[in-house]
């Protein structure tokens, strides 16, 4: 899937939103058709089956419709919709009892936020923070893509949801820091620090689940 373009046809989206609010079902259907591929693409990273993905995407759009009158046009419609999709997916995981995030520590603690000191960035070096002291080997070339993907999600399931979400948005959706900051309602510096810790946690999860890939 291509990178998310955050401002596609803003005026058209706005018009479709207004027409939907006025009771035009077809306009809302056009909005769904326009964004369904991206939302399906995003939600598949949270769910385990196509049926679950479809349920979450459907609920995302229904939630969007129910909250359409609260859309303030301050962000693009796609950013607003992505936010609903992420929240709906996380709600789904919680209800399904599949939220592995039982992190008792504040994920922002112990990581200096670069946004607070732009002149002297203090993000710890790779491989030092986040409890991931061991390095990791690259996936075995003999592994099928599907097998690597299975390990990917196995490790993602092990890390707190806020880290998983920034990894998904950055690595799979190829979103820019600024777009992620807008979507999540956080600063760019926080995006950077979360991403840093997310990668460290992800690497740690893989070396813990699959010690054969750990490099001392």
């Amino acid at each position: 899937m291509g990178p998310l373009v955050m401002q596609p046809a803003v005026s058209e989206d706005t018009t479709l939103v207004e027409e939907s609010l006025a009771g035009n079902q077809l306009s809302f259907q056009v909005l769904v058709e326009r964004y369904q591929e991206r939302i399906f693409g995003l939600v598949r990273h949270y769910a385990k089956s196509a049926v679950e993905v479809e349920d979450i995407v459907q609920d995302t759009f229904i939630k969007a419709y129910l909250k359409l009158d609260t859309f303030q046009h301050q962000s693009s419609f796609s950013t607003w919709l992505y936010r609903i999709a992420v929240n709906t997916a996380l709600d789904f995981l919680k209800r399904a009892g599949r939220n592995p995030v039982r992190a008792v520590e504040d994920p922002e603690v112990a990581v200096a936020d670069p946004s607070r000191s732009s002149s002297t960035p203090t993000t710890p070096p790779v491989g030092v923070a986040g409890g991931a002291a061991r390095s990791i080997a690259a996936p075995d070339s003999r592994l099928e893509r599907e097998e690597v993907s299975r390990i990917t999600y196995e490790a993602l399931d092990e890390i707190p949801e806020i880290f998983r979400t920034v990894l998904i948005l950055r690595e799979f959706e190829e979103m820019a820091y600024q777009d992620m900051a807008n979507l999540l309602g956080i600063s760019i510096g926080t995006v950077e620090s979360r991403l840093f810790r997310a990668r460290a946690r992800f690497k740690d999860a893989i070396t813990r689940l699959h010690p054969e890939y750990a490099v001392e």
Partner: peptide, 22 residues
Amino acid sequence: VRRWLVPRDEIAIPQGFAARVA
């Protein structure tokens, strides 16, 4: 680390999904 981040295959969107949801 990035090489370990491999997404799942895309999911086919059911026929008539948008109309049904609307």
